[in-house]
């Protein structure tokens, strides 16, 4: 059973003075998962990642990697980026990769060239790291994480500061590693749209607590289509919905729109019932609840996702 899980945290807690940054988080990541960690700024995502990677010490709780407790040995099988690329600015792209290869005791010298090609930095190999754009730095940092052929990648905001094509490159690389090399991936990102394109499981962190975990299939189930109905008389329309459609599962929005979370597949019938009762239906359309909308629904507000 242990080996099925790449990462397990048990009631992981971190206190800074009296402030609780991470509060009893228990996460399980199975081999082959792409686990997306979602939370607003200051929710505790980075602190959680730092504890997993051993650069911050938990106040309470424990971390298990690859089903074992020898974290030092297990971390040799992990590649990671924490917040932003960590490079020696005065060394060239190639030297940065080379020094990391030596550090990890990788004997295959050719891997440096291969990885530079893989992340499309082979032409910039003699450029100093300080002269690279943020996107190039991110790609170099990604190449460094791959140098030891890791089984588990921990990426904290890997698309920060990247342009759309850079974001796509990272997304494709992550997908490729997961599908073709069976690398398990733990990724935190603000870009929920991007995350929803790759993640197979999600965890939502709010105020240091893991408030919900779900798979992408569960998200689809929870995010069934809703119906947006714009009417001239909200009060009367809601009475009819409750009486004739027999549901209270709706939300009235500020702009004279009722969001119906049931009957999403029957817009015609809803239109007919409302019209028969003298309500003017100005518009009616289907709305797909995506990861971002679901996150907002769970956490309440729209600030600093």
């Amino acid at each position: 059973m242990g080996e099925d899980y790449i990462l397990r945290t048990v009631m992981l807690t971190k206190l800074y003075n009296r402030v609780t940054a991470v509060d009893g988080v228990s996460i399980n990541i199975r081999r082959g998962d792409i686990y997306g960690l979602i939370g607003r700024n200051g929710a505790g995502k980075t602190t959680l990642i730092r504890m997993i990677l051993g650069v911050a010490k938990p106040t309470k709780g424990k971390v298990e990697l690859f089903g074992g407790k020898d974290l030092g040995a297990a971390r040799k099988k992990i590649g990671s980026i924490i917040e932003r690329p960590s490079l020696y600015p005065t060394m060239t792209v190639e030297q940065n990769l080379e020094v990391h290869r030596i550090l990890l005791g990788i004997e295959n010298e050719k891997i440096v060239g291969e990885l530079l090609e893989k992340v499309a930095l082979d032409r910039a190999r003699r450029k100093k790291a300080s002269d690279l754009s943020l996107g190039m730095k991110q790609r170099l940092a990604l190449a460094m994480t791959l140098i030891a052929s890791p089984e588990f990648l921990v990426l904290d905001e890997p698309t920060n500061g990247l342009d759309p094509s850079g974001i796509k490159e990272v997304r494709d690389l992550v997908k490729d590693l997961n599908q073709n090399s069976n690398v398990t991936i733990f990724i935190s990102s603000h870009l929920l749209g991007e995350l929803s394109k790759i993640a197979s499981r999600y965890g939502i962190v709010e105020k240091g607590k893991l408030i919900e975990e779900f798979s992408s299939a569960e998200l689809d189930e929870r995010a069934k289509q809703s119906l947006l109905v714009k009417v001239d008389n909200i009060k009367r329309a809601t009475e009819i919905i409750e009486k004739d459609l027999g549901t209270k599962n709706y939300k009235v929005r500020d702009d004279n729109i009722i969001e119906l979370f049931e009957n999403g597949e029957k817009p015609g019938e809803v239109n007919r019932i409302l019209s028969n009762n003298g309500i003017v239906v100005e518009s009616i359309c289907k709305s797909q609840v995506d990861l971002e909308a679901y996150f907002l629904k769970i956490t309440g507000t729209k600030r600093d996702i």
Partner: peptide, 18 residues
């Protein structure tokens, strides 16, 4: 200091180096 300023220390320690 360069190890800390460049944040390479994070990468080194998270790679299982004690």
């Amino acid at each position: 200091v360069e190890e800390f300023r460049s944040r390479r220390v994070l990468v080194i320690l998270s790679s299982g180096i004690s």
